[in-house]
């Protein structure tokens, strides 16, 4: 008899304890981080420090290396239920400086997010001399007034053909033209943030060889291109095809 009571009470206890306090999971915040990565034909880009190494080949058949890669992205935004959410006005990426390759954008509210967008470079409205005089990139990226003013969109530099010849792929708003272009990933990578999503990581990748290779072939020379509107426009067209992004959840 005693045993039966004991058994019964144990069962009752377990039953009630299961039914009591259905476990409400704690809501977890979702922090958004954007990572900037760089590849050459799908292989991670390494900055080279020795001129004699020319590990990459462009569509024109030139071997080259990359010693410096710096650029500005602006108006980074996501589309939400409530409209466009601007995440960052201007961000400076310097391949050599790991702290610039990761952009912490704080907590995302619950909702559906889609259409990651950013401008490569600065649009005409933003590309004004001294507009970012207190930003760390000001002196590095400034573009002379004489050539239209504002800032370089990108500086990609290195050797090509041999260790004594250098190319400077410097893009920007030559003579105040707007050669910035927009990346817009569209809807496929829409994601939902709810109480259980956790952190969101977006990776934006630039396939750097694309600057010279698709759809237009560009041949590297030692000549400066900052005053060359035709080339700036071609680079802008090529550039709009070389970005991709992925979204991952924690």
């Amino acid at each position: 008899m005693n045993k039966i009571i004991l058994l019964f009470s144990i069962i009752a206890l377990t039953l009630t304890s299961c039914k009591k306090d259905p476990v409400i999971p704690m809501p977890i915040p979702s922090f958004l981080t954007i990572h900037f990565t760089h590849t050459v034909d799908g292989v991670p880009l390494d900055l080279t420090t020795t001129e004699s190494e020319l590990p990459y080949t462009n569509a024109a058949g030139q071997n080259y290396n990359v010693k410096k890669l710096q650029y500005l992205v602006s108006n980074i935004s996501l589309e939400t239920n409530e409209g466009t959410k601007t995440l960052k006005d201007v961000h400076f990426v310097d391949k050599e400086d790991a702290s610039t390759l990761k952009l912490d954008l704080g907590e995302l509210e619950n909702g559906t997010y889609s259409n990651l967008k950013f401008n490569f470079g600065l649009n005409g409205e933003m590309n004004i001399s001294n507009a970012y005089v207190n930003e760390g990139f000001h002196a590095t990226m400034a573009w002379p007034d004489m050539m239209g003013g504002g800032y370089h969109y990108m500086k990609m530099e290195g050797n090509f053909d041999n260790d004594t010849t250098f190319y400077n792929t410097h893009t920007g708003g030559t003579m105040s033209n707007d050669y910035s272009f927009q990346y817009n990933e569209g809807n496929e990578k829409a994601f939902v943030v709810n109480d259980q999503t956790g952190d969101i990581e977006i990776t934006i990748n630039m396939d750097a060889n694309g600057w010279y290779s698709q759809p237009n072939t560009i041949t590297l020379t030692t000549d400066g291109i900052m005053g060359n509107m035709q080339l700036q426009s071609t680079l802008s067209n090529n550039g709009s095809c070389i970005f991709s992004n992925s979204v991952t959840y924690e």
């Binding site: 002196a139 007034d145 005053g227």
Partner: peptide, 21 residues
């Protein structure tokens, strides 16, 4: 000075005439 003809501005640019790099 301010074009790639001389290219001075890349290292001595802005109103400071220096990038201090």
């Amino acid at each position: 000075f301010n074009s790639e003809k001389g290219d001075c501005f890349h290292c001595h640019g802005t109103q400071q005439f220096a990038n201090n790099q």
